[in-house]
Amino acid sequence: MNVPKQTPEIFSILSKGNFISSNGSKGKLYDVITYENNFELLKEFFSHTGYYLERGHNYYYFSQQEETNTLMEKKLEQFAYYIDVMDFFSSMDTKPVVGTRYRVTQIAEECFSNERLKQKLFALSRKEKMVDKVAEIAGDLTTGGFFEQEDEDTYKVMDAIHYLEEVISLITIEDDGEQTNPQ
């Protein structure tokens, strides 16, 4: 099996739970995976490690077939947080569309002038300064691979944000059961 020479780098990124997005600084790796039949090759190759290479819209990630309940719970908690963060960014004037560049100071400014946004931000971070709060949540999204930090103040929305959007779109709010009471 002739895997690309970048395979170790790809593995080291994806195995940490990160994404490889086409519009990120690791866009070259995205190209490598996309090149000819590399995806199938790598999927097969990585499957022996217990990781399954998955393809999203312009991004790649690893999934695992079997996960412990604790891990699942942790992921769910994480997701609950991400949903709130996404809600926060979606409430802004500039929506978190792929490729959008956010400046921490700019977000903080918008929060100063938008009470609703401010409240959301306060619920998300306990840091003292507004700028620090914004930096914290932007940093969290960056850690998750949904944002990428371009310089001290600027974050860019990655293609992997589609993953969050898809997961959020899969959530169905069921009835709480109180209403349905057939005699």
Partner: peptide, 22 residues
């Protein structure tokens, strides 16, 4: 969305001047 995605693929100070102040 398309413009953000397009411009987002380039470096912030790319020489082709594909910059957008959102």
């Amino acid at each position: 969305g398309n413009i953000s995605e397009f411009a987002g693929r380039f470096r912030p100070d790319n020489h082709l001047n594909f910059k957008i102040n959102n």
